[in-house]
C-alpha cells in the first residue's frame, strides 16, 4: 500500500470565532490530480493555504511525504520548497525579470550558483512554453503568460506536490486554455497536483479524484465520473446544478 504524498488528518481552522475548516481528512497519492470544488466560503482555499502554512492550522496534522509540516520547530523554509504554490493573482515580482522571478529562490534558498539557477530556470520556462520571455518583465506579459511564469516559478524548485489556488479565475476566458494546457502536461509528466478551481471541464478530463467541500467539511469525494455523473449528496447535486446553469 502506497503512502500518500499529502496526508491531511482532522484539520481544523478558525479565524477568531469563525470555524472555517471543521475536521478535514484527505489523502493525496503520488501522481494524482485532486480537484476541489465547492461554493465560495466552503474553505477550499483555506485548506490549500494550510498545506504550506500560509494559514496556520488551529489543530490537526498535515504530512508531506511523511514529514509533519505542522510540528513545532519544523523548518518551514525548507519544507516549502517541496510544496509548490500557484496563486490566483499570480503574484509575480514586478521589479524583476521573468527569469529572476523563477530563479530567486533557487539562488537564495537552495544556494545554486548563478549558472545552475539560470539553467534550471530556463528549463522550467521551457516546460511552460515561455522560454523566449525570459528577460521580459511581468508588466509586459498577458495574464495567461504571467500565470504560466508563476507555474514555472514553482516547478523550478522541483516540488513533490503543486497546489493551485483558483489558477484561472483571474484570467480572460481566451487565456484560460493556455494555462490549463500546461497543467495537463504537468499531470501527464506525473506531478502530484491539488487544484481548487471552477473549471469543471478540466476536472472531467484530467482529474483522478474530485472532492466536494461545503461549509468547512468534505461532503463527498470520488472519481470525476462518480461526482459529476452520479452525485449522491443533495448539496453536491445542488451545487453542480447551479454551476451548469451558469455555464449554459
Amino acid at each position: 500500500m502506497q503512502t500518500p504524498i499529502l496526508k491531511i488528518t482532522n484539520l481544523h481552522k478558525s479565524f477568531g470565532a469563525n470555524e472555517v475548516l471543521k475536521g478535514i481528512d484527505l489523502d493525496v497519492m503520488k501522481g494524482q490530480l485532486v480537484f476541489m470544488i465547492g461554493p465560495s466560503g466552503s474553505g477550499k482555499s483555506t485548506l490549500l493555504r494550510c498545506c504550506n502554512r500560509l494559514e496556520e492550522p488551529s489543530s490537526g496534522s498535515i504530512l508531506v511525504d511523511q514529514e509533519d509540516i505542522t510540528a513545532v520547530g519544523a523548518d518551514l523554509n525548507r519544507i516549502r520548497q517541496n510544496i509548490g504554490m500557484v496563486f490566483q493573482h499570480f503574484n509575480l515580482y514586478r521589479h524583476m525579470s521573468v527569469l529572476d522571478n523563477v530563479t530567486l529562490a533557487l539562488r537564495k534558498v537552495q544556494k545554486l550558483s548563478k549558472e545552475d539557477a539560470k539553467a534550471r530556470g530556463l528549463d522550467a520556462l521551457k516546460r511552460v512554453g515561455l522560454l523566449e520571455k525570459a528577460s521580459a518583465f511581468p508588466d509586459q506579459l498577458s495574464g495567461g503568460q504571467q500565470q504560466r511564469v508563476g507555474i514555472a516559478r514553482s516547478l523550478a524548485l522541483r516540488p513533490k506536490v503543486v497546489l493551485f489556488d483558483e489558477p484561472t479565475s483571474a484570467l480572460d476566458p481566451e487565456l484560460v486554455g493556455d494555462v490549463l494546457k500546461v497543467m495537463r502536461e504537468l499531470k501527464d509528466d506525473g506531478m502530484t497536483m491539488v487544484v481548487v478551481s471552477h473549471e469543471m471541464g478540466f476536472a472531467r478530463a484530467a482529474a483522478d479524484h474530485v472532492v466536494f467541500m461545503d461549509a468547512g467539511k468534505i461532503v463527498e469525494q470520488g472519481t470525476p465520473q462518480q461526482i459529476f455523473g452520479t452525485p449522491t449528496h443533495v448539496r453536491t447535486q445542488a451545487f453542480l446544478a447551479r454551476m451548469s446553469e451558469h455555464a449554459a
Binding site: N77, I79, M85, N91, Y93, L104, A105, K108, V109, S154
Partner: peptide
C-alpha cells in the same frame, strides 16, 4: 506592497528577512 508578494516569496522557501 501587496501581501501576495511576500506570500509568494515565503512559499518558495525564502525567510522573512530574505
Amino acid at each position: 506592497v501587496p501581501k501576495g508578494q511576500s506570500e509568494a516569496a515565503r512559499s518558495t522557501g525564502l525567510s522573512w528577512l530574505q
